Simulated assay, not measured.
Amino acid sequence: MCKVLIFGCIAAVILMTAAYGAPLKKTKLSTAQKENFLDFYTPNDKQECNHTTLACFLKELKVLKQDVEEEDKQLVINIEKNLEDFMDPDFSNPTCKKCEANEKKKFPEFHQEMTRFLQSMQKEIV
């Protein structure tokens, strides 16, 4: 079950990337243009902070959802739903960085880090 969810998340992230590559309307700023203005806190913590890292990615996806065009919102919502299944609301580790303590990066780097994180989680489960 966990493998399916992780593969689903990775697939959704790839679809989101494809959506970001093609501007949908010429009259508005395209999503690709917007990503140059948006910065996302991008965690890169190691294994002991997986839950905190996941929570940070989810928090930043909520920011992304507010800034994407209507056509792309469902992709972000799907990713959120899949990742929320892995959340442990009782997890707390005071040695893990808060989301806001992470470096801010543009969407392509944020996406790359999130993909790496999900792939590392997948390896742990397998």
Results as ranks from 00 to 15, higher is better:
Gly8Thr: 07
Cys9Ile: 07
Ala12Trp: 00
Ala12Tyr: 00
Ile14Ser: 14
Ile14Thr: 13
Leu15Glu: 06
Thr17Gln: 12
Thr17Lys: 14
Ala18His: 05
Ala22Glu: 12
Ala22Trp: 06
Pro23Gly: 15
Pro23Cys: 13
Lys25Pro: 11
Lys26Trp: 02
Thr27Glu: 12
Leu29Ser: 12
Leu29Cys: 09
Leu29Tyr: 07
Ala32Tyr: 05
Lys34Met: 08
Glu35Thr: 00
Glu35Lys: 05
Phe37Leu: 14
Tyr41Trp: 05
Asp45Phe: 04
Gln47Pro: 02
Cys49Met: 09
Asn50Ser: 13
Thr52Cys: 01
Thr53Tyr: 06
Ala55Leu: 05
Leu58Met: 01
Leu58Ser: 03
Leu61His: 07
Leu61Phe: 12
Lys62Tyr: 06
Leu64Lys: 09
Leu64Ser: 09
Lys65His: 13
Gln66Asn: 12
Glu70Gly: 07
Glu70Ala: 15
Glu71Lys: 10
Asp72Asn: 14
Asp72Phe: 04
Lys73Asn: 02
Leu75Ser: 01
Ile77Gln: 14
Ile79Tyr: 03
Glu80Ala: 05
Asn82Val: 03
Leu83Pro: 06
Phe86Ser: 01
Met87Arg: 15
Asp88Gly: 09
Asp90Arg: 13
Ser92His: 15
Pro94Arg: 01
Cys96Ala: 11
Cys96Met: 03
Lys98Asp: 06
Lys98Trp: 07
